[in-house]
Design a protein around this nucleic acid. Structure first.
Lengths: 333, 333
DNA sequence: GTGAAAGCGCTAACAC
DNA sequence: GTGTTAGCGCTTTCAC
């Protein structure tokens, strides 16, 4: 029914080995033979069975991708970067959502191992001990994309979140603000708690501004949460005049909530987000944002993974991409 | 090095068949034997090789997903619906972006066939003859998600786009508008050209409003394009007072461009979009939108695919999901 | 430049 | 309830 390499061999009067050679572009085949085989392949519409090939060669040309949630623009952008480079190197991607759930992450790693993927790109907001342990026993190489793991045992691609956050907050301070709120997703995310927040504190400290816990709002990363955060913060006796947010959605929520009570952005309050997704340009005022190059992080992660899979000499397993701030209208010049 | 079913069999003093049975939950195993095998599996950290299993059983428990672009919220939502149901039925997903390119779509179908996926969920804005032909020779079942194909040879999950568009435009007409623009992505998309646009025409016709080609703007589906479309349309001698758009981004572009020239939404112009993504609530005014249940379309498509893969009796291969309008503030009550 | 043959790790009859 | 064995479709030595 399905035509196999054996059928092709028989029809072309050659051995399976020869068919295999032409299919795989092995140069050790006489041109006439190659032509004959190719002709039969075409006539029989032979299509190599990748599963059989995977079993025999121990390479599946597929890599696993584990991300929190593909329906979130944030991660979707990352995924696209990964997929583009994967395609370029002829890999396919098995994509799974972890929903940031540790048990699920571990289960997914196991599934990927079982499926014999040639490598894995993973994003996790919190690389726990258990996950780290699971990863260190991985049968195939793993690259962390946009995820920090302090021991640096696992190759990873990131930007300098501390520095980026520092620069954003510094900009707010330079613009004369003393009451600057830090709004982000939950501190269960390592990057929020140990990087962005640290950069925020560093900038405040350097400017001699005392940290005020009332201005640290790390709850949920969503538009609605941003609106609520503004509302709460604005009820303080001494409300913030500037906001540094961990994402675009959060910033938009804050801006809308501010506008709802008649405040003007950037005249009354200034806002800088950390992400710069497509959304940043789709609000009025448009968002000044610290650029998190998600697509690039994905692409570079996948590229790094290909190098490791090919056992190429790779000196730098921890890559730090550059960042920059995109200044728009939610801040004053 | 890697532990195989053979190793487990030897250690547990049973045959490979027995190990296979316990791994696959076959009840024909004596509890004590099962326990012993399980113990060895645990001790040896045996993990079944899915590739070998796939070759032997001719089932890979993975399905292919071909969508235009995962970085677009629109498709990402669809993908999440697919993945959730796939996970529920223990399938993994091989995800690929087609970028709406026919050659790439065909190539991807071939890749999926080669990888022996058990089924495919595909979204395509234009199911060409060539693609249809390729699909009809598919070795595994295919379901089209949110994609129309007139011959209805391929199982598909959609909503009634014509009717939905009709209702949206009707609402605008009922609100007193006579100059209603149709703004969508390109007409290379069957749904734009032969469904939404048809519904638009139907509503106009029914109200005795002549179709004005100047009000039909089918270019690119993006925020910027929306802004440009408004600008152009607004320069007409008799500019539109209402807009029906094919997506949220387009609607937001229009609203912002309108606001930039001092027009108020919904007082001066009214806007209804067709999508209702998360974005719809993240603009001021919030968008009145015809709900396109992408997540559900993805989920139902995958569910349908599981039924077909299991050869369950499935009477309805063409499913039409219900739609509804979410009224917010870009239209008057 | 080409072929023979031994696996890759598992499932699925079939036999007992 | 359990074991034997023949593949699944391909790659990969190793000969020639």
């Amino acid at each position: 029914m399905t035509v196999t390499i054996y059928d092709v061999a028989r029809e072309a009067n050659v051995s399976m080995a020869t068919v295999s050679r032409v299919v795989n572009g092995n140069p050790n085949v006489k041109p006439t033979t190659r032509k004959k085989v190719l002709e039969v392949i075409d006539r029989l519409e032979y299509r190599p069975n990748a599963v059989a090939r995977g079993l025999a060669s121990k390479k599946t040309t597929t890599v696993g991708v584990i991300i929190p949630d593909i329906s979130n623009v944030f991660y979707a952008e990352l995924a696209r970067g990964i997929e583009d480079i994967a395609t370029m190197y002829r890999y396919n991607i098995i994509l799974s959502n972890s929903d940031q759930n540790e048990a699920k992450e571990i289960e997914l790693l196991d599934t990927m191992y079982g499926k014999q993927v040639d490598g894995i790109v993973m994003m996790s907001e919190n690389v726990s001990e258990a996950i780290l342990d699971k990863m260190s026993h991985s049968p195939s190489p793993i690259v962390l994309a946009g995820s920090v793991e302090d021991s640096k045992q696992i190759p990873a691609v990131n930007i300098d979140y501390v520095q980026a956050a520092y620069e954003a907050v510094k900009k707010l301070i330079d613009n004369g603000h003393k009451r600057i709120a830090f709004v982000s997703g939950p501190f269960t995310s390592t990057i929020n708690k140990e990087h962005k927040f640290v950069g925020y504190q560093k900038a405040l400290e350097e400017a001699g501004i005392a940290l005020d816990d009332n201005l640290v709002l790390a709850a949920e990363d969503s538009y609605d949460s941003g609106m609520e955060d503004f509302t709460h913060a604005n009820e303080l006796a001494d409300p913030p005049t500037a906001y540094f947010t961990g994402s675009d959605e959060l910033a938009i929520g804050i801006i809308h909530a501010a506008q709802d009570v008649g405040k003007s952005v950037p005249d009354d309050i200034e806002v800088i987000s950390f992400e710069n997704s497509k959304l940043a340009r789709m609000v009025r005022p448009q968002l000044t944002s610290m650029v998190l190059p998600l697509y690039d992080i994905g692409a570079v992660s996948m590229r790094l993974l290909t190098k490791i899979m090919n056992k190429e000499q790779t000196e730098q397993l921890q890559v730090v991409l550059p960042h920059r701030m995109e200044e728009r209208n939610s801040t004053k010049a």
